[in-house]
């Protein structure tokens, strides 16, 4: 309610023409009178609608007859009816200290969300989606790889295939998603020695990898890593995580979304998530190998070979890469091998 009387000078627009008239607004508890050169408008104070304060901008005061009075902002206008929620926000905005505090708080929340919140949320979501939902996606990917001739039919001898398959079946035995797994042999001139886990449980092993490996245990080491990706549902998890990150980045950079900075930021953050998934899969592989009496040292050996053939990661600046530095992965494997030997 109006406690002190208000006297403001501004401009009045009647809503019929985009031309204004200089006007005086006088208000007290009993009523509001607006005077222009040739018009007098009067009403009750609670019939007015005042636009919320926004920095130092002019305020718009709407009259019940459809006219509008515009004037410079001042404290006394807060006595009129206006939107409560925005008044609080306007008050927060008026303080530089809060802006600084807000930025600090936000950095903290972003950091927490990035390292803890989002991976946790993604895990929760993934746990509630059955692995069968991924099968179609995996099959489609495999079909596309075949069609684009990235993957060609395998040339491995049947007895070699049988040995690899035997190892694979031994590795997957007793795992929670045991039934979902399927091993596919392919030859890939473009990818060389490699293994890939597709959504839904398909694992592709290339001829190059089998030929590069000195023994079956080394092939098993790589397959164990890929099994880790599938056990942890990494393809779905990274999809969910990437979506969250995209949402977060676009809310921060909303004003400048088109500048491409958002794209750059999501590549870098996506890489760090991907590295975390890779080392999770590595650790899974180490314990799976240990449980089958295979030394994690085989993992280290095959990684070194892959590095020398140029498949493994050679980029040294870690945030530019989807995989952790190879040296780190080899060290971890050797560490795991020593622990295993010590038992």
């Amino acid at each position: 309610m109006i406690e002190s009387s208000i006297n403001k000078i501004g401009e009045y627009f009647d809503g019929n023409r985009p031309t204004g008239q200089t006007a005086t607004l006088q208000a007290h508890a009993g009523g509001v009178v607006l005077l222009t050169e040739n018009e007098t408008v009067s009403c009750q104070p609670d019939e007015l609608l005042v636009s919320p304060r926004i920095a130092g901008a002019k305020r718009f005061i709407q009259f019940p007859n459809g006219g509008q009075f515009q004037c410079e902002d001042s404290e006394e206008l807060d006595q009129f009816k206006q939107e409560k929620t925005e008044a609080v926000v306007a008050w927060l905005e008026s303080m530089v200290g809060f802006a600084v505090l807000g930025i600090a708080l936000m950095l903290f929340i972003l950091q927490w969300g990035y390292f803890t919140g989002i991976p946790k949320a993604a895990e929760l979501i993934v746990e509630n989606i059955s692995i069968e939902a991924e099968v179609e996606m995996g099959e489609k990917t495999l079909a596309a790889l075949d069609e684009l001739k990235i993957m060609l039919p395998s040339n491995l001898a049947p007895d070699v295939k049988k040995k690899v398959l035997g190892k694979f079946n031994k590795l997957r035995r007793g795992l929670p998603h045991e039934k979902a797994y399927r091993l596919e042999f392919r030859r890939s001139p473009s990818m060389g020695a490699n293994a890939i886990a597709l959504p839904g449980g398909i694992i592709i092993v290339t001829d190059g990898l089998v030929n590069l490996a000195k023994n079956m245990n080394e092939v098993a080491a790589v397959m164990a890593h890929e099994i880790g990706h599938i056990e942890y549902r990494h393809s779905l998890k990274s999809m969910v995580q990437d979506s969250f990150i995209a949402l977060l980045i676009s809310s921060v950079t909303g004003d400048i979304s088109a500048l491409g900075i958002a794209g750059m930021a999501s590549v870098i953050t996506g890489n760090s998530y991907s590295q975390k998934l890779e080392s999770d899969a590595d650790n899974f592989a180490f314990s799976l190998l240990k449980s089958q009496d295979i030394s994690p040292a085989h993992f280290a050996n095959i990684m070194i070979k892959l590095y020398n053939t140029g498949v493994a990661n050679k980029v040294k600046v870690s945030f530019l890469s989807t995989h952790p530095p190879t040296q780190e992965r080899v060290n971890n494997a050797e560490q795991a091998a020593r622990e295993w030997a010590g038992q």
């Binding site: 636009s51 919320p52 926004i54 920095a55 901008a57 929620t85 925005e86 926000v89 927060l92 905005e93 008026s94 303080m95 530089v96 809060f98 802006a99 600084v100 807000g102 930025i103 708080l105 936000m106 929340i109 972003l110 969300g113 949402l247 977060l248 809310s251 921060v252 004003d255």
Partner: peptide, 30 residues
Amino acid sequence: YFRIWAVNLCLTIITLGLFSPWAKVRKKRY
């Protein structure tokens, strides 16, 4: 605008995006 932007961003993230319509209105008004 820095103050409006900082408050908007902070409240939007704290409320998990629920504040974003208010943020949009504040920004547009400004």
